[in-house]
Design a protein around this nucleic acid. Structure first.
Ligand SMILES: [Mn+2]
Ligand SMILES: [Mn+2]
Ligand SMILES: [Zn+2]
Ligand SMILES: [Zn+2]
Lengths: 132, 132
DNA sequence: TGACAAACAAGAGTTGCTCCTATCTAATAG
DNA sequence: CTATTAGATAGGAGCAACTCTTGTTTGTCA
């Protein structure tokens, strides 16, 4: 919660509860998934607070809002450089790691024109569970 | 429209109008953006028809539904292998091309477990227009 | 121990699809 | 060339996932 104070944000019980759930998660939850999880320990919390807090956290770099193919925004508690496999059937987003991908060079013409903040390789396909 | 017949889909004036707009577009329209464009030539068309047709086209491989960070689904009339730069400010998605990226190998552990249908490098950052 | 800016809960409002139904039409058979 | 009909469309209701508003509460600092 140092990160909160550092950004002039108050340290509230709601923020602490959401943060704790976030760091123990290993998947890519939607705002509603986080809400359902957090409300088990904090029955009076509102969806709006969870959603707003996740967006606040993404602004101060605690979570990432990641690319998706569905209508729900997906958050990623793992903010290190890694890559994603999207299953087109079950919509799950699966992490994978590759030094080769991490070290990809940004093309010159892009570097000249734009400011690149992050890069990621996104694979689409069918996961092992959906193949049967 | 051969593609339609080949997939047992009727060739309707609406589908022709949407298809024509699609192939002349060079950006990544949302369903609503397509609706607004197509209705100029076809004032009586409904949003639902445009949206449904875009999804139908994506099923038969005429367009791609691409990864996004917002709430609107984005379509891509360019179905060849290429890569995307997402501007986090104006939300524009800009194409770029790189032989190096096209030739990326899929990691062994992914290839073993999953069926990969497409790959793309996604860069996030700030575009030239938003930098001023 | 106040004062107060910031954050919260609850619920209304908005956006962007998605579904439903009556009507229409492209394709095929006669 | 017409009749038939499965499939497609328009218009509108319905729904999911946020997003905003308002009145109340609370963490922080003096
Ligand atoms: Mn991840
Ligand atoms: Mn593209
Ligand atoms: Zn799957
Ligand atoms: Zn921009």
């Amino acid at each position: 919660m140092k990160r909160c104070k550092h950004n002039n944000l108050k340290v509230t019980p709601q923020r602490i509860a959401i943060y704790k759930k976030l760091i123990e998660l290993k998947n890519h939850p939607s705002a509603d998934a986080m809400f359902q999880t957090v409300r088990r320990d904090f029955p009076n919390i509102s969806f709006d607070t969870v959603n707003r807090t996740l967006l606040t956290f993404s602004e101060i770099g605690i979570v990432d809002v990641i690319e998706g193919h569905g209508r729900q925004r997906r958050f990623d508690p793992d903010i290190s450089c890694h890559h994603h496999f999207h299953c087109v059937k079950c919509k799950e987003i699966i992490d994978f790691y590759s030094a080769e991908y991490d070290n990809l060079e940004i093309p010159e013409n892009i570097k000249k024109k734009f400011t690149v903040l992050s890069k990621r390789v996104v694979l689409n396909g069918i996961c092992d569970k959906c193949t049967e």
